[in-house]
Amino acid sequence: MRVFAALVRQGMKVMLAYQWENYMGLVGNFAFLLLFSALWSALLRGDPEAQARMLSYVFIGQLLQNWTFTPTWELAGRFRMGDVALELAKPLSLPVRVLGDFLGRNIVRVLRALPAFAAVGFLMGIRLPDWPQFGFFLLSAGLAWVINASLYVGITLISLWTTYFDQAHQILDFLEGVFSGFYVPLWYMPPALAAIATYTPFPGMFFTPAAIFSGGLQGAEALSALAVQALWAGGSLLILYGIWLGGVRKMTVMGG
């Protein structure tokens, strides 16, 4: 655990060196916030309660984007250059190091984003949920990070087998885009698909924490969603380790 904490601190230091990218990323966040808030305001014009809930949902959704950002292309680039041989020589497995690094970076991204989001949230009239609900949100956001990071790092490790990892990455992006609730929350999906999506890992990557924050999931519903999310967080870690261990056995380093 101490080693993992050291990796997180290292990731934080790395991110602290990239201020410009971080602040420019906020411009993108607020453009998306503008898009989604305008869209949902237009769609829910006759229902102020649902409108307020959706504004809160899209607001926290953009902050979550900073929290779950995983620059896995850097990892794939290292593999392409043959650096994977060096990775194997290190005394700590690659997934642990990458997850620690990404967590550290994400913490800094969120801390940097918070003042701007607080100001925008104030202007938008976003209200924080009460304490137990906010606790559920924090827990859910933590689990969302585990699912996102594990699945995206896992899919990148496919590059230990094949150079076509980009395509696999895009398929995951597609599934996440459709079923995570990023574009359309589960409430507004066709009911049959929403029912299926509930049991996939994708809502746990975005919808569950955003819906808990906005008050769309409360009480027993929130606990049930958290339980599914926790199962998928464990499952995603297992998938990541399965791909890593299988890939290490399979791969051949150039010249080897």
């Binding site: 869209l39 237009a42 769609l43 076509y164 980009d166 395509q167 895009q170 398929i171 992006d173 597609f174 599934l175 885009g177 459709v178 574009y183 359309v184 507004y188 999906m189 066709p190």
Partner: peptide
Amino acid sequence: AQVFSMIATYMGQFIALSWLTDRFGSIS
């Protein structure tokens, strides 16, 4: 593979858009 994955990427947005408009009928 790239062609297929790009089609899938855009299909995702297309599907989301069609869900919205199916559900709400129209946008502005």
